[in-house]
Design a protein around this nucleic acid. Structure first.
Lengths: 231, 231
DNA sequence: CGAGGAATTGAGTAGGTTCAAGGCCGGTGG
DNA sequence: CCACCGGCCTTGAACCTACTCAATTCCTCG
């Protein structure tokens, strides 16, 4: 639609385990992640890390960065990643010029909010097992939503350390939870491939409601808007 | 500005400890909280509660509710509260018709995001003491930002249960942290009045950075937009 | 084939939960 | 005006989950 060319023109590539944006610096531009996997995270003084959210293809970032002086967290890649950057002047006009895309972005922001709320609940009130089950469900769910997975199998290029940093656990606790899930044949996880064998059971453990991401009634995922023109 | 009359016209009052919006139901309308204190929360199956965020005067809610089928959390009052409701059709036009107010809302959304991130970090990686120190700082900070407090003293109409539900602790753990702060003369807290005696020390315990809410360089708080016309 | 990070497992510890009891305070009704 | 009542605060003690420390094995990559 013209928009998409503008975006894909400015595509940047990043290696795995590299920072896209660094805490303390002013954000450089808005972007959409088009390929790969990244995460927003923060490093604490004692060296510990907390992963705030995962950034999947189709997710946008810093759309409103022009309002901010300095990032309060970093964004780093987990796998080789591509992003399409775009000027803020451009972003600001989106709702007016491309109402459908604007609505999709609006929606997307809503969904991210919902994810963050769920994370708060998980970290605040759930056991280690529940947290691990939860994060696995989230990842699978989101990948399915953007068409990166049929059935309930996904690529999981995360270490147990990463998973722990996402849900506030040590790798040891994550490992024990995973082992338990394997023993009970709830999941399979080998060489970066995760399969949820008994999702219902896992969601019960995670105490997730069926529709926690408001996925029902969602407009087309943003990614589709790009795919349509072959990006 | 015309806008404000429209809003204040629809003011609703709520008693303390009452739900404004209930999980599972579709949101009714957008609103701004004008007086009082509320919180977004969720009740889990085991009966536990997690408070997601506190809603202070000037905070908005459900601006985009028209996109959602059912709320994934409730909003309840903590003190007697007043809200100014408004139709979504109206909200949608704000950025176009009232750009300055639109910018303020945009900003406000950013800030809420920052608060949520901070919460995630606190719940994921910090000790009980740090979490309690953190939530006290947040509350004081935010009240100061909207002009509800000079110095570092605020009204704190929350029980220790509420505080615990906000930071994922039991009331017992909250109590012990508070006692310790009192012993060390970091705070004073009696009959709903909280005073932070040594903020620097508390922020250090909470591991908060000086500028965690991006309060530097913020445009006028939203509340000011209302106050200007005497709401 | 060697090296380094990740996964796995065990043992001991600690921070927070759970359970429980007593005191305080504010609100209500007589 | 005062007594009663219920919820909150406070504190102690036992328990438990997840952390810490550590050693071994496994994978993957160069």
């Amino acid at each position: 639609v013209g928009l998409l060319e503008a975006l894909s023109a400015n595509e940047q590539r990043f290696a795995a385990r590299v920072d896209i944006v660094t805490e303390g610096e002013p954000p450089r531009s808005a972007f959409v992640l088009t390929h790969g996997l990244a995460c927003r995270y923060r490093i604490l003084r004692n060296g510990r890390r907390q992963i705030l959210t995962f950034v999947l293809p189709g997710d946008t970032s810093d759309l409103n960065g022009f309002l901010i002086r300095a990032m309060d967290h970093s964004i780093g890649t987990l796998t080789p990643t591509r992003i399409a950057t775009s000027q803020w002047e451009f972003v600001i006009d989106i709702p007016a010029k491309y109402p459908r895309l604007g609505a999709a972005l609006w929606w997307s922001a809503l969904q991210e909010d919902a994810i963050q709320r769920e994370r708060i609940v998980a970290l605040g009130r759930r056991s280690a097992r529940a947290r691990v089950a939860y994060i696995l469900c989230e990842l699978v769910w989101r990948q399915k939503a953007i068409g990166l997975s049929e059935d309930h199998a996904i690529r999981l290029p995360l270490t147990q350390i990463d998973l722990g940093d996402a849900v506030g656990l040590t790798p040891v606790a994550v490992n024990r939870a995973l082992q338990e899930f394997r023993r009970n044949e709830l999941i399979t996880l080998e060489r970066g491939r995760l399969v949820l064998l008994l999702i219902d059971r896992l969601m019960e453990i995670a105490q997730l409601s069926q529709d926690y991401l408001h996925l029902n009634g969602a407009p087309l995922p943003i990614r589709r808007y790009f795919e349509r023109s072959g990006l």
